[in-house]
Amino acid sequence: MSLNSAKAELQDIAAAAATRNAMEQDCRFLSHGCRLYTIDAGWQSDALRRSGDVAVCDSMLTLEKAMADTAVTSVLIPKGAMLTHAGIERVCRRHGVTKVLFEEVGGDTDE
């Protein structure tokens, strides 16, 4: 196994672990089956961000685009994003699709 493929595999494992950790914790039920989980800032959110499987949305505009994109299944809302829970709920309501959203919270506690 090359160094690059080993690194990619590790990143995949980290992203899967981060997703699983998040999905075992807090959850807000949003419209149309969308769910908003919290993910710890630090290695967990970094792993998810690096995995490339999520669309990182820091504003209503980018969230709107991600919701309309059929290729996007998961969304990461970074800390400091210009989004409120009411806004997220509103966007989910007007796009009748099911996506999983992760909201980055807290600090680097589990490093």
Binding site: H32, A68, R94, H95, V97
Partner: peptide, 21 residues
């Protein structure tokens, strides 16, 4: 109610069903 409308749409296609308030 709106969930049912959007569900019917999701059953048919991966594209979103726009929900207009």
């Amino acid at each position: 109610k709106s969930f049912l409308g959007a569900l019917q749409s999701r059953l048919r296609s991966k594209e979103r069903a726009e929900v207009l308030d």
